[in-house]
Design a protein around this nucleic acid. Structure first.
Lengths: 133, 133
DNA sequence: ATCTAAATTTGTAATCATTACAAAAATATA
DNA sequence: TATATTTTTGTAATGATTACAAATTTAGAT
């Protein structure tokens, strides 16, 4: 995918920082925190400011090309995938897995007459790899 | 329900503060934040400290009689219901509704071989009341 | 190419929820 | 009653996020 083009398509001017931040999100797919993104990119972009990372992610969210994952109280994570999907966090190794689920099953009867804008499913436990160790 | 007894049963000494905090959680069922609890109870208990509210809720969670609701990034809410259930937050009036869902539908095939400890379902949108206004 | 205006980035300080920690108060035990 | 233990409290520290204004970069007009 052409990142500059993807940003432009969503009404975001493709500055150097924006391209790098989106590239990191998109390629790593590791649901990073702001701090993770900053620490990784400041090597390549020595003048990078954490404020820029915050500003940029907020812009990406406004424009609909990034979503947040708030599976923990004390940290917000970011995801280049914006389609409805859930997340599993392993309490042993800390890895976060994307999980699909049938959206209809979750949109329960109780919400008849409600307008649903967003659904987040967060599952915690131990992952396959940690269990077989 | 006898709150002192309920606390004792779960290995929590029923101090005045603990009883009042649990009572608030249990009776109001409004998924309050620490600040909400503090502001409400400090009228009745003028010496109450916010630290006590934090300590007490942490204890309740450890002992399994309270759960957290992290439907927003910037605030943790608390719930006296600990059975698996989801939450709907209205983006218009801010109210939080409890919602049941069929747990099996959410525990997806992808998590075969994983050990699931906890599932949270968070839905945001507009509630019935706000829509019909 | 040059000037000017607008957008973007940056650094610092402020904010706010939460935690750490130690002193004070209350409770239980001998 | 005296002592040990538990609980509560207040203050300070932490850490993520936001506010804000200056500096830099980019874009558009001439």
């Amino acid at each position: 995918m052409n990142i500059a083009h993807h940003l432009s398509e969503h009404d975001i001017k493709p500055s150097y920082q924006r391209i790098k931040i989106y590239e990191y999100l998109y390629k790593e797919m590791n649901h990073p925190t702001v701090d993770t993104i900053y620490k990784k990119l400041v090597g390549e972009i020595p003048t990078l400011s954490k404020t820029t990372v915050y500003n940029t992610l907020k812009l990406f969210i406004d424009k609909g090309i990034t979503s947040t994952v708030t599976i923990e109280d004390n940290e917000v994570r970011y995801d280049a995938i914006v389609d409805a999907h859930g997340h599993f966090k392993c309490i042993s190794c800390g890895a976060i897995y994307d999980i699909k689920y049938d959206f209809k099953d979750v949109a329960m009867n109780e919400l008849k007459g409600f307008e649903v804008k967003e659904t987040q499913v967060h599952v915690k436990g131990k992952c396959n790899q940690c269990l077989t160790k």
